[in-house]
Structures are given as structure tokens and as C-alpha cells.
């Protein structure tokens, strides 16, 4: 996935420490994608992916920061969202990305489902934290 770090400087950053912060992060994603003229279906998919990843960050990563930015690449424009936590990381990514696998009592669909909902999905994880980056392109 292309590095949108530079675009991220102008991003809105939302610290997530409780479940109402996840709602605010979701709203920020919704507002920005609405403003960028994204279709309702794409908006809904992106916001839902953000909801999943934001909640994972809170539950398993002990909270962190969500950054949202409008980005462009060539002719197309989209929304980039980064979820960064300093939690224990994911031991086995392949397993975690499997539909239906959960270490807690979820449905085990958050990570794999989020990946299907967006156009680009990138995950880095280690003992000092997890960072997930996603992009949904417009229209």
C-alpha cells in the first residue's frame, strides 16, 4: 500500500480511550467521506470498517489514535484512515484474519470483514503495538 504518511500530517487525529471515542472517530470518518462526495454505499462500508478497527484497537490494543485524511492518488481521491495502538500486538495474523476466529467473544469477523469493505488494507503488528491503515477510493 502506498505510504500516505505525508498526507497524514494534515489528518484529523482522534484519541480513542473508550467506546464513545470510537463513535466520534466513526463520525469523523463519515463526515470526511461525505464531504469528499463518496457514494452512500462506499461511505457506509468505510465507516463500518472504521468501526471494527477502532473497536479492536480499544478492546485488544488498550486504545490508541485514529487518524483520518482525504487523499488523492493520480486522478482518484479517497479517504485514508490509520489505527495505531501500543497494545500487545497480534500473535498470529493469519489466524486473526480468518473469518470467525476470535480470541475473545466476538464474531471474529472484524479484521477480515474490514479488509473486504475497503480497497486497500495494510497491517503491521508486533509486541509494541499494531497499526492498521486502510483506504477507500471515491465513488
Amino acid at each position: 500500500m502506498k505510504d500516505f504518511g505525508a498526507a497524514g500530517v494534515t489528518a484529523e487525529a482522534i484519541p480513542v480511550a473508550n467506546s464513545s471515542d470510537v463513535v466520534s472517530a466513526r463520525q469523523t470518518v463519515r463526515n470526511l467521506s461525505q464531504r469528499s462526495g463518496m457514494s452512500l454505499v462506499h461511505q457506509t462500508k468505510l465507516v463500518t470498517a472504521a468501526s471494527e478497527l477502532g473497536r479492536n484497537m480499544l478492546i485488544y490494543g488498550g486504545g490508541g489514535v485514529v487518524r483520518v485524511a482525504a487523499v488523492t492518488d493520480g486522478g482518484r481521491s479517497g479517504i485514508f484512515v490509520e489505527f495505531r495502538d501500543q497494545g500487545p500486538g497480534i500473535g498470529d495474523i493469519e489466524l486473526a484474519m480468518t473469518d470467525g476466529w476470535t480470541s475473545g467473544n466476538g464474531m471474529g469477523l472484524g479484521l477480515s470483514g474490514a479488509k473486504r469493505l475497503v480497497d486497500e488494507f495494510d497491517i503491521e503488528t508486533g509486541p509494541s503495538g499494531t497499526t492498521v491503515r486502510i483506504v477507500k477510493w471515491g465513488r
Binding site: 454505499v41 461511505q43 462500508k45 463500518t48 473469518d99 469477523l109 469493505l117
Partner: peptide, 13 residues
Amino acid sequence: RPQIAQTIVALGI
């Protein structure tokens, strides 16, 4: 709603 239906399906619910 249609957008919710599509999202639910993509999520795998």
C-alpha cells in the same frame, strides 16, 4: 437499507 445490506454481506455476517 440497501447500503446496510451490502455492508453486512461484505462483512460476512
